[in-house]
Amino acid sequence: MPVRPLEPEDDRIQHKKAVLNGVTYHYLYGVPPSGSYKGTVFLIHGWPDLSFGWRYQIPMFMELGFRVVAPDMMGYGGTDAPECPPNPISMYGLKRASDDIAELAKQLGAEKIILGGHDWGGFVIWRVAQWYPQLVSHIFSVCTPYTAPHREYISLEQLADGPLPQFRYQIHLASGEVEKIVNDEQKIRQFLKGMYGAKGPNGEEAFDPCKGVIPENLPLIGESRILNGKVLDYYVREYSRHGVFGPCYWYRTRKSNWEEDLALLDKKVIHTPVLFIQATYDSVLKPEMAKNMDALLPNLTRGEVPSAHWALTQKPEEVNSLIRKWLEKEGVITKSLL
């Protein structure tokens, strides 16, 4: 039976706030109708998304008997967006995100969590499992392959000029130019529609992985099939709280993330059970990026869906089925619950 996705005003979930290491976070919170639950699942979104990007997965986990926690990450939606400077850019880094997730789990009394991520959220969950291995019982990543800590620093420019030319957009997002382009509610609406697959009348795109955001095309962008109606309105409202500068800060953290990662060089191998779901048509996180993960993830299960980057909402039934089967294989749920 297909899951009924969350609506912006949905009585199955609560919108909650928590102060985590001095920053106020907004998060979605759901429990099974019975009020009792067998475990806690944390779901971490990426760019340019929100906690609501998990709207097809949150009901599934609740139906399977789990408590679900999905935060808006730093700079997004109802969570604070501290400016940098005066704050250090590491506020938007992987270590800080890991610390805040661990703190939220502590406040909620969750000694163990299942941790899922997509896009930037995928990068976050790998580091949470390394900084807080006793907290995380299982990990699943949709689209985002595991990248181990490196002793040598590799800049965005080196990546884009070398093995990952499709990462050149990150240079644009880090430049400060995107905030100047996407600077009011209407432009946020056009930007989001374009990022979620909408095009102009002659196939014009709002985004090119090898370039970044294409400002002259934003006014031309039509409707998106996967982000529209009330859900699009919700995203526009949430992004209009702070604008896009907070989400763009994440792309300025490469060096600070590397510096903090140096403490993890002896923790490259993650022994936690892992599910990796590849979106076979992802134009940025391409399948070849994930081919060499097995040696560092000895408990890895692989799956794939015929989708572009937004697999969570483009192919929700396929994604959810892979997660359910993996949880069954791991003995977390039983077949009778499926």
Rank of each mutant, 00 (worst) to 15 (best):
residue 127 R to H: 06
residue 128 V to M: 03
residue 129 A to K: 02
residue 129 A to N: 02
residue 130 Q to G: 03
residue 131 W to Y: 14
residue 132 Y to V: 04
residue 134 Q to A: 06
residue 135 L to V: 03
residue 135 L to G: 02
residue 136 V to L: 02
residue 137 S to H: 01
residue 138 H to V: 03
residue 140 F to Q: 01
residue 140 F to E: 01
residue 141 S to W: 03
residue 142 V to H: 12
residue 145 P to N: 11
residue 145 P to Y: 00
residue 146 Y to E: 08
residue 146 Y to S: 03
residue 146 Y to T: 05
residue 147 T to F: 14
residue 147 T to Q: 13
residue 149 P to H: 12
residue 150 H to V: 11
residue 150 H to E: 15
residue 151 R to H: 14
residue 151 R to T: 14
residue 153 Y to R: 11
residue 153 Y to N: 09
residue 154 I to V: 13
residue 154 I to E: 09
residue 154 I to N: 06
residue 156 L to E: 09
residue 158 Q to A: 14
residue 158 Q to N: 10
residue 159 L to E: 13
residue 161 D to T: 07
residue 161 D to P: 02
residue 162 G to C: 14
residue 162 G to T: 02
residue 163 P to V: 13
residue 165 P to W: 11
residue 167 F to S: 02
residue 167 F to Q: 12
residue 169 Y to H: 15
residue 169 Y to I: 10
residue 169 Y to N: 08
residue 173 L to V: 02
residue 174 A to R: 10
residue 175 S to F: 10
residue 176 G to N: 13
residue 176 G to D: 03
residue 179 E to S: 14
residue 179 E to N: 07
residue 179 E to Q: 15
residue 181 I to G: 01
residue 181 I to Y: 13
residue 182 V to S: 05
residue 182 V to F: 11
residue 183 N to D: 15
residue 185 E to H: 12
residue 185 E to W: 10
residue 187 K to L: 14
residue 187 K to H: 10
residue 187 K to Q: 10
residue 187 K to D: 09
residue 187 K to Y: 05
residue 189 R to Y: 05
residue 190 Q to P: 00
residue 194 G to N: 01
residue 195 M to G: 01
residue 195 M to C: 14
residue 196 Y to H: 13
residue 198 A to Q: 01
residue 198 A to W: 00
residue 199 K to V: 15
residue 201 P to D: 06
residue 203 G to V: 09
residue 203 G to H: 09
residue 203 G to N: 06
residue 204 E to A: 03
residue 204 E to K: 02
residue 205 E to R: 13
residue 206 A to D: 07
residue 209 P to S: 07
residue 209 P to W: 11
residue 210 C to D: 09
residue 211 K to H: 12
residue 211 K to V: 15
residue 211 K to W: 10
residue 212 G to A: 12
residue 213 V to H: 13
residue 214 I to L: 15
residue 214 I to W: 11
residue 215 P to I: 01
residue 216 E to H: 14
residue 219 P to L: 08
residue 220 L to I: 06
residue 221 I to V: 09
residue 221 I to M: 09
residue 221 I to R: 08
residue 223 E to Y: 01
residue 225 R to W: 11
residue 226 I to N: 06
residue 226 I to W: 04
residue 227 L to R: 05
residue 227 L to M: 02
residue 228 N to Q: 13
residue 228 N to K: 14
residue 230 K to T: 05
residue 230 K to D: 08
residue 235 Y to G: 07
residue 236 V to T: 07
residue 236 V to S: 08
residue 236 V to N: 00
residue 237 R to G: 09
residue 238 E to I: 10
residue 239 Y to I: 06
residue 239 Y to E: 04
residue 240 S to G: 10
residue 241 R to Y: 11
residue 241 R to C: 10
residue 242 H to T: 08
residue 242 H to C: 08
residue 242 H to Q: 09
residue 243 G to V: 00
residue 243 G to L: 09
residue 244 V to N: 10
residue 246 G to H: 00
residue 246 G to F: 05
residue 247 P to M: 06
residue 248 C to F: 07
residue 249 Y to A: 09
residue 250 W to E: 05
residue 251 Y to E: 00
residue 251 Y to H: 11
residue 251 Y to R: 08
